[in-house]
């Protein structure tokens, strides 16, 4: 205690120490190690060698798997849009109209997390299967073609991703909507805005930080996801996450896997920066307080 009293500047450092240690050991160090391994050449059997000349790992990996990158972006984008379309009205309802049911509804939003991610995704195989409760009746009454299928198509993969990540869209939007002072809406109507006008001019701009946070929390894990493509897709729906997973754990081509991972991170970073600029979120969040 004497040390702290003599050097009060140490206090923030000591408070940060557990966090720094944790992130340093389990985030920073592995990342650096992985970054280094993206410049490796060789194989697991014959040993790897580091050389800056191995930057060609990057263009090589990109050349081979650009299709999967593109597909990941498309699927991630589609899933994020679907999540938004589901989440905004739901969050709006919970924030403004749910009354006493609010806490129950919020609980229901997070309730799926009580079951394993994998189990829930496998569950969709049963629901979307060719003779399932969804397709079976439709087929038997002749509403759809008997050969029609959902499972093992891009539709089921995107639907699975959207299903799994929708709570991450709902919660931030709910929080930002819930924070809005109801008197602001009255003020807007007092100043001749119709209900729609008040929504567009007041509610929507004030919900923007939540929409931004929600779409990032959905899009980022969605673009790197491999579970949904693995369980609900076919070889033609492979996403970049599946490639990375296979390169690391099956093929054990660590340099290619590492290069693919870093390019994915870079891609996300660039995307998020552009998105943030477009929405002007920094300005919004700092002024909406």
């Amino acid at each position: 205690m004497g040390l702290i009293r003599r050097h009060p500047a140490l206090v923030p450092l000591l408070l940060l120490l557990p966090g720094i240690t944790w992130l340093g050991s389990f985030y920073l160090a592995p990342n650096l190690q992985m970054f280094a391994s993206s410049f490796w050449s060789g194989s697991l059997e014959n040993g790897f060698a580091f050389s800056l000349g191995n930057w060609v790992n990057y263009p090589n990996a990109l050349g081979t798997y650009q299709e999967q990158y593109l597909r990941s972006i498309q699927y991630g984008f589609a899933a994020t849009l679907i999540c938004f379309a589901i989440a905004f009205p739901l969050a709006y309802f919970i924030a403004f109209r749910s009354g006493r049911a609010r806490s129950i509804l919020l609980f229901l939003v997070v309730a799926p997390f009580f079951t394993s991610y994998l189990l829930r995704t496998i569950g969709w195989r049963t629901i979307l299967g060719d003779e399932s409760i969804v397709l079976g009746p439709l087929k038997s009454v002749g509403l759809i073609d008997p050969s029609a299928r959902i499972l093992d198509t891009p539709v089921s993969v995107v639907a699975g991703i959207a299903y799994n990540f929708v709570p991450f869209m709902i919660l931030p939007i709910y929080v930002s909507l819930e924070k809005i002072d109801r008197r602001l809406l009255e003020a807007a109507q007092d100043l001749y805005a119709s209900s729609w006008g008040a929504f567009r001019r007041v509610t929507l701009p004030l919900a923007a930080p939540g929409i931004f946070a929600g779409s990032l929390l959905t899009f980022i894990p969605a673009i790197g996801d491999f579970v949904n493509a693995e369980l609900l897709g076919n070889p033609g729906t492979t996403m970049i996450g599946n490639v990375i997973q296979r390169q690391f754990l099956v093929v054990r081509d660590y340099p290619t896997a590492a290069a693919l991972s870093f390019m994915l991170m870079l891609l996300i970073l660039i995307g998020v920066t552009i998105y943030g600029r477009l929405l002007g979120t920094e300005e919004l969040t700092s002024k909406a307080i």
């Binding site: 002072d181 008197r183 602001l184 009255e186 003020a187 807007a188 007041v202 701009p205 002024k287 909406a288």
Partner: peptide, 9 residues
Amino acid sequence: FQSYALFPH
């Protein structure tokens, strides 16, 4: 309004 209800954005 009592709390002014100025639009923060």
